[in-house]
Design a protein around this nucleic acid. Structure first.
Lengths: 337, 337
DNA sequence: CCTCGATGTTGAAACGTTTTAACGCCTGAG
DNA sequence: CTCAGGCGTTAAAACGTTTCAACATCGAGG
């Protein structure tokens, strides 16, 4: 069933030593063309596949990096992953994606496995602050979309406070004064930062911090956005916000849907701003104003930082990108009729 | 920097032989409790991490399966992956996700790497029919969302002809007779099958096959759906379809957006049916009628089939699931005003 | 007191590569 | 004719585990 043809079978078949076969595989230029041909033919004929475990055991390096992602179903992360993969390919590395699905247990298991596999490096968007304290075990680790609090590793993040400020400032400029923020849970650093930015925008405009109605959700999924929409509409008209800032686009899409179902118009009855600018934001029936993060660049930079880890004079760095507001129909200024 | 503490360092530190350490790791019950404690303490103290390469080299098995996915950014595939991972976890295996991004070259590279890594098995949604002919190299391979034409491997698929038939029959029952199908490229088997189903539905209803306007797209992305929408609206009113069947939900979402932008109402001016029933389909501003595939079950079954591959009396099987129509607002019957 | 089986532990041989230093051969210079 | 140097090839030693047969140790049964 599995004859498991090895390098020495190939060697024997080609009438050379196994060292020569190894050379053909790793330094083709060093072996005479004639011999090389003979060896390649033997490889083809026997269906030989190099055993990466043995190779790695001896050679040390694995040619693989991994990205442990928080939620593989969130388009934001798949876009980041695309950036990671591009950078990895440029460096001749393959990328394995692991999905922790916001589960600390899974995350730990994958980290353990990846360490054991001796991957070249690990990128991770950790489930929570605790799990970010992953013990250093010899494999370089870079935090993605989180800021490393201590100086023990590199991190790549986006300025979420600024993002929140951009979003809410935009709403204020459009004449809104009663604004809601939808997001949660507050255990997520991002949500806290974005809210802080929102409050700062209000303060800058001379508005009281209380004019921000905070609707906390249990997760950042579409369904939660729908729920928030219902809560919003249930508020007494005098206190009901005229605009909502959502902590991510999935929530915003849910909110949007909820509005439409309840017979309210976006942006006329409620302006909506999302966060992440995922592809579906632009594709929504009412295209969503959103705070764009440089997703692919985030991934690409994280990968590059990871690769620089084993340079001799490596210093851990914390890169922070600036977000950018993308204005679309969901916050168009109310038409005077 | 990397002292690389091995099993024998642990052994020495605990005053036992390396065989005992190995036993603690793999058969804890066989070693005396006292010794076990001592060894575990040494492991902890030295920060030992088992070298999986060496383990695998000797032991043969890798405790990992991989899923080579066609497009990691398509929610359909991430849902399938979720099913795969659940099944893998139940079997004590980890899942590595690899993204071929519809690129035959990447796909080949990943397959090569995975073979070399000696993963326990590979699940793959191949880029095209050719690449489905992956040479058997000792690692079990199962096709996902594709039907294996030859009997050399297992496959898990969904009846796409039936799916197309369900979709278009529904439209016909709602009174539509001029129907468009949006999808492509036709090199994708799924698209061909779904079209075949659409035609069959028309035939069953006694309508001519020509009443199906086929709008071919270059990919199954949102942007292509928007483009198709513009082409559709550009048709002379007499020939313009009153309903559209899209080969997947991404196209349908694009089409939907295009309609709204052009001031047409869904479903009043154009009824729309999608395919896959991804989460965003229900969350769209006009909730999308769609053909649901048992995504997670697809993944789960594929994984189970893969695991059964190394049973002694294994026979390659081809599982085919039935799709199901989910009716939502995008095909609500036109209200008589 | 001897034997036996059970229980725990160990030494050494794999596993399939990569790598290093050495080897033989050939060519051209002296 | 000798010798230095280049080139292609090779034997053998790693790499860090797992596994297996063998080995102590001990208590019980004869």
């Amino acid at each position: 069933m599995k004859p498991s043809v090895g390098i020495r079978d190939v060697a024997q078949h080609a009438g050379v030593s196994n060292a020569t076969v190894s050379n053909v595989l790793n330094r083709p230029d060093v072996v005479a063309p004639a011999t090389r041909q003979r060896v390649l033919a033997a490889i083809e004929q026997l269906g030989f596949v190099r055993n990466e475990s043995a190779r790695q055991l001896r050679a040390g390096s694995s040619r693989v990096i991994a990205y442990v992602v928080l939620d593989a179903a969130n388009p934001f992360f798949t876009d980041v992953a695309r950036g990671v993969e591009d950078a990895a390919r440029d460096a001749g590395l393959a990328l394995f994606l692991c999905n922790s699905a916001s589960d600390g247990g899974r995350e730990r298991e994958y980290l353990e496995l990846l360490h054991e596999q001796r991957v070249e490096g690990i990128l991770i968007t950790p489930v929570d602050a605790e799990s970010a304290q992953i013990a250093e075990r010899g494999t370089p680790v870079v935090l993605v979309d989180r800021e490393a609090t201590d100086g023990t590793r590199c991190s790549v993040a986006v300025d979420d406070v600024l993002g929140g400020e951009l979003a809410v400032t935009h709403l204020i400029e459009n004449g809104h004064t009663r604004i809601a923020m939808v997001g949660g849970p507050l255990s997520i650093q991002q949500v806290r930062d974005r809210r802080e930015g929102a409050v700062r925008a209000l303060t800058n405009a001379g508005l009281p911090a209380e004019s921000l109605t905070f609707l906390e959700t249990r997760s950042l999924q579409v369904a939660e956005g729908r729920g928030a929409g219902e809560r919003l509409v249930g508020l007494p008209a005098s206190r009901r916000p005229t605009a909502a800032f959502c902590a991510n686009d999935l929530l915003a899409l849910g909110l949007l849907q909820s509005m439409t179902q309840q017979g309210l118009r976006v942006p006329d009855d409620l302006a909506v701003v999302g966060y992440d600018d995922i592809e579906f934001a632009a594709a929504a029936a009412v295209p969503l104003t959103s705070v764009r993060q440089p997703r692919e660049q985030l991934g690409r930079t994280a990968a590059q930082l990871l690769l620089s880890e084993n340079e001799p004079d490596h210093e851990h760095r914390h890169v922070k990108f600036q977000p950018e507001l993308v204005v679309r129909a969901s916050t168009a200024v109310k038409r005077r009729k």
